[in-house]
Measured scan of single mutants.
Amino acid sequence: EVYKVKIKIERVLPNGEKVEEEITIEVEGMSEEELLALARELAAEPGVRIKEIEIEKLPP
């Protein structure tokens, strides 16, 4: 199964400015739980906050 994972994050820059970013990846052969863990890892940097995680199962 192939999933499209869209992660919206908010990053706080050293000057205090907040910037929103969106990361989209396609992943194959992982469960939804593994995808959530991967998304959290991607956003685990200091000053980064996850705003939204969207997981979509793509048709075969």
Rank of each mutant, 00 (worst) to 15 (best):
V12G: 04
E56R: 05
E1R: 05
E21Q: 12
M30L: 13
E26Q: 13
K18F: 15
E33N: 09
A37W: 12
R49N: 10
V27W: 09
E10Q: 03
A39D: 01
E45R: 07
T24G: 03
K18W: 15
I7D: 00
L38G: 02
K57A: 04
R11L: 02
T24N: 07
P46E: 07
L58S: 07
E45G: 06
L35G: 13
E21L: 05
I53M: 04
L42H: 08
A43K: 02
E32D: 09
V2M: 15
Y3H: 04
E32R: 08
K18E: 11
E28F: 08
K18P: 05
E22Y: 09
E1Q: 12
E32V: 12
A44V: 10
L42T: 12
V48T: 07
V19S: 06
I55F: 14
G16I: 01
R49P: 01
E41P: 02
L58M: 14
G16K: 02
A39R: 02
E52R: 07
E22F: 10
V5N: 00
I7M: 08
V2P: 03
V27F: 15
A37S: 10
K6F: 08
A44M: 14
L42P: 01
E10L: 03
V19F: 05
V2T: 09
I50W: 01
L13Y: 14
E17Q: 13
E41V: 10
E26R: 09
I7H: 00
L42Y: 15
K8A: 04
V12H: 14
P60L: 05
P59F: 14
K6D: 01
P60I: 15
L35F: 04
K51Y: 10
R40F: 11
E45L: 10
E56A: 11
E52D: 11
A44I: 12
E21I: 05
E22Q: 13
E10C: 03
I55M: 05
L35M: 14
I7T: 01
A37R: 13
G29S: 13
K4I: 12
V12L: 09
E28M: 12
K8L: 11
E54S: 13
R11E: 00
I25T: 03
V19E: 09
E17K: 11
E34Q: 11
N15D: 10
E20P: 04
V2E: 04
L38P: 02
V12A: 14
L38R: 11
Y3Q: 02
E54I: 12
K57C: 06
R40C: 04
E10A: 02
L13M: 09
I7Q: 00
G47M: 02
I53Y: 03
E56C: 04
L36K: 08
I25H: 03
Y3T: 03
V27P: 01
N15M: 04
S31I: 08
V5M: 15
G29P: 06
L36T: 08
L13I: 04
K18L: 12
K8S: 07
I50K: 00
E17N: 14
P60T: 09
I50V: 09
E34M: 13
R49Y: 13
E45C: 15
M30P: 06
L58Y: 12
L58P: 03
V5H: 00
A43F: 09
A37F: 15
L36F: 14
P59L: 08
E22H: 09
P14D: 12
P59W: 10
G16E: 03
K57Q: 06
V12P: 03
A43L: 07
A37L: 10
G16F: 03
A44F: 14
E52S: 11
E52I: 10
T24S: 09
E20G: 04
I7V: 12
K6P: 00
E32H: 12
V5E: 00
V19G: 03
L13K: 12
E34F: 13
E33P: 05
R49L: 15
G29L: 06
R49C: 11
I55A: 01
R49H: 14
G29T: 09
P14A: 14
K6Y: 08
I55C: 06
K4F: 05
N15A: 03
E1P: 12
I7C: 02
E54L: 15
R40P: 02
E52A: 11
E52N: 06
G47Q: 04
R40M: 09
V5K: 00
L58R: 08
A39V: 14
T24H: 14
E20L: 06
E22L: 06
P59G: 15
V48H: 02
R40D: 09
V5A: 05
I55Y: 05
I23N: 02
E54P: 00
L36R: 05
E34G: 11
K6G: 01
G29Y: 11
T24D: 08
I7R: 00
E21K: 04
L58C: 15
T24Y: 11
V2H: 13
L35T: 10
R49D: 15
E45I: 07
V19W: 05
G29V: 05
K8R: 08
E34S: 06
I23F: 12
N15I: 01
V48L: 08
A44D: 11
R49M: 10
V19M: 08
K6A: 04
P59R: 12
E34R: 08
R40S: 09
E10D: 13
R11S: 02
